[in-house]
């Protein structure tokens, strides 16, 4: 008798769906009611909160900042993480495992500690600012607290280790012999990367980038600490709406908009990737 191992997936799948759907249902359902104060919601359902969101530039600007900082953080993570992942993946010595272990350990460090490390490095009297002032690159200390640059740096710091691990697993699936063959036939290193590595790894990079983007869209701590109370991303605004304004319905609306935005951006990316494949710009 054939054992149907795939049935083992069902409990985990059901639990995951239940947890995701039930928590999102509470938010989504609440978003269609009016706030009556102290977490109480009106009986009647309406779209008032959504009209408010899409007619108010403050909320729209918050959504734009959330997408922009997440996209920039994703791009930075990929650009910084790919060379690191490539080097580790192609390394033949035992240093590869040590470096990989270092990346894994770094991902375990809580984001609060990482962010405070950034704050210390970029402090006015920190070594980085002292050095930049000394060489005359800047004429006054530069800070990353309270601006979008800081939020992008914080999000990148949050996702970099995870990004390197994802990209490492992607690069590992591409046989080294492809690169060797191209080089034997006279391709330069740059051409090998541009014509072999990039097309072969692009589907993996896209999936990795989407995961990093999704993590960044929902990240709270980096945005809250480095945004310095000036840069509002949607997760930061949701926290303030729940904790200070005690408006659960509006917070639910913000959460729903965040969720739908992430889903739409993911679907759009998958669609674009399919178009690239169809145009044979990507090999999968």
């Amino acid at each position: 008798m054939k054992v149907r191992w795939e049935l083992l997936l069902i409990p985990g799948f059901l639990i995951t769906i239940l947890l995701i759907v039930s928590s999102q249902y509470v938010f989504l359902q609440g978003s269609f009611h009016r706030d009556l104060g102290l977490g109480r919601l009106s009986e009647a359902m309406n779209l008032g909160n959504y009209f408010k969101f899409f007619s108010d530039t403050f909320y729209l600007n918050t959504l734009w900042i959330t997408i922009k900082t997440s996209a920039l953080a994703t791009l930075s993570t990929i650009l910084l993480g790919f060379p690191v992942a490539y080097l580790i993946a192609r390394m033949r010595s035992r240093w590869a495992m040590i470096l990989l272990a270092g990346v894994v350990v770094a991902t375990f460090v809580t984001i609060v500690i990482k962010v405070f490390g950034l704050i210390i490095i970029f402090s006015a009297d920190g070594w980085l600012n002292r050095f930049l002032l000394w060489v005359g690159f800047i004429d006054r200390p530069y800070t990353i607290i309270g601006n979008e640059v800081g939020v992008v740096v914080g999000l990148m710091h949050f996702t970099l280790g995870f990004g390197v691990l994802l990209l490492y697993s992607v690069i590992q699936t591409i046989p080294r012999s492809y690169e060797d063959a191209a080089q034997i036939h006279g391709a330069s290193r740059w051409r090998v990367h541009w014509r072999i590595m990039l097309p072969l790894s692009l589907p993996g990079i896209t999936v990795g980038a989407l995961m990093i983007f999704n993590m960044s869209m929902g990240a709270f701590t980096s945005a809250a600490l480095l945004g310095g109370g000036r840069v509002f991303t949607l997760p930061v605004l949701i926290q303030r709406t729940v904790m200070m304004e005690i408006k659960y319905a509006m917070a639910g609306t913000l959460a729903a908009v965040l969720l739908v935005s992430v889903i739409l951006i993911n679907l759009l990316s998958v669609y674009l990737l399919k178009r690239l494949k169809a145009a044979r710009l990507v090999i999968a």
């Binding site: 403050f58 918050t62 900042i65 000036r230 840069v231 605004l237 303030r240 304004e245």
Partner: peptide
């Protein structure tokens, strides 16, 4: 207060 504050200090 919170709503006005958010709008006022946001970049």
């Amino acid at each position: 207060w919170t709503d006005q504050w958010n709008r006022s200090v946001a970049q």
